[in-house]
């Protein structure tokens, strides 16, 4: 493992010896990692390597799968999120998530963004400001400010995904997880989302799973490589892509297997 990352000075997320099973099948094996604050951390690896499963542990989305069993420790800002008395709903407010396929609700653009804050009790008169701020942060306001009452489905795929990012930001999380956010988008929309993600790290800690190694190389500060449920290597992105420490990492990123 790469020396620089063994002990992160200011880790926001700390994972220790995480094991996860789906029924009898072990999907994560002894994963330990420290994810630094206000940075972009990318997870790469072949399909089924456990990278998506891993980030879904960080906001406990795996709880929705009945056969899923977890051992180990995941703490965010020093607090064990699998500990007793943890409110999953509160956790997910703190750790937002953007999914593979843009999934706006069948509502207007405005209502999509207002949905979260409204249920979390934001005043009706403050709501408009929250929506505008979220849309601006997602670099979407200038494109759609004249039609925020039209249905979200009238937006293009890339705009829908940025809407979903805005929707996530509207509930003011500290961490945003991206699960292959560009896999359904064209290159230009992808470039816009990548640019956005790089800007967001000022205010959020970003964790992103991607199939696209170039994407990980372009936007992340740190990269983790997963293979068959194990964290093989974690290091500065530049180093992973120029001089990985592990043979299997090199073989994967240079396309010698996959």
């Amino acid at each position: 493992m790469t020396e620089a990352i063994q002990n992160v000075a200011n880790p926001q997320i700390e994972v220790k010896d995480l094991n996860l099973w789906y029924g009898d099948k072990q999907a994560l094996k002894n994963v330990s990692i420290q994810i630094p604050k206000n940075s972009v951390t990318a997870f790469i690896g072949p399909s089924g390597c456990g990278k998506s499963t891993f980030i879904r542990c960080l906001n406990r989305m795996n709880d929705l799968i009945k056969s899923c069993r977890i051992e180990g420790e995941v703490s965010i800002e020093g607090k064990d999120i699998y500990g007793p008395g943890v409110d999953v709903v509160d956790l997910r407010k703190q750790v937002g998530m953007v999914f593979q396929k843009p999934n706006p609700f069948p509502m207007s653009i405005y209502d999509n963004i207002a949905y979260g804050p409204r249920i979390h009790g934001v005043n009706k008169k403050d709501l408009e400001g929250v929506v505008e701020h979220a849309l601006r942060s997602a670099a979407l306001w200038d494109e759609i400010s004249d039609r925020i009452r039209s249905p979200a489905f009238s937006l293009s795929g890339g705009q829908q995904q940025r809407l979903c990012i805005a929707r996530t930001m509207a509930v003011k999380p500290e961490i945003i997880l991206f699960d292959e956010p560009c896999s359904a988008l064209d290159p230009i929309s992808t470039a816009k989302i990548e640019e956005l993600i790089m800007n967001l790290k000022k205010d959020y800690t970003i964790v992103i799973v991607t199939h696209n190694m170039q994407q990980a190389a372009r936007i992340s500060d740190h990269t983790a490589f997963f293979l068959m449920g194990e964290l093989i290597e974690f290091g500065k992105t530049r180093q992973i892509f120029e001089n990985p420490g592990e043979k299997s990492t090199e073989d994967y990123i240079t396309g010698r297997f996959g």
């Binding site: 170039q214 992973i240 990985p244 990492t249 090199e250 990123i253 240079t254």
Partner: peptide
């Protein structure tokens, strides 16, 4: 081909 790692070097 966008070579990476050892290939890039």
């Amino acid at each position: 081909q966008q070579p990476l790692a050892g290939d890039l070097r």
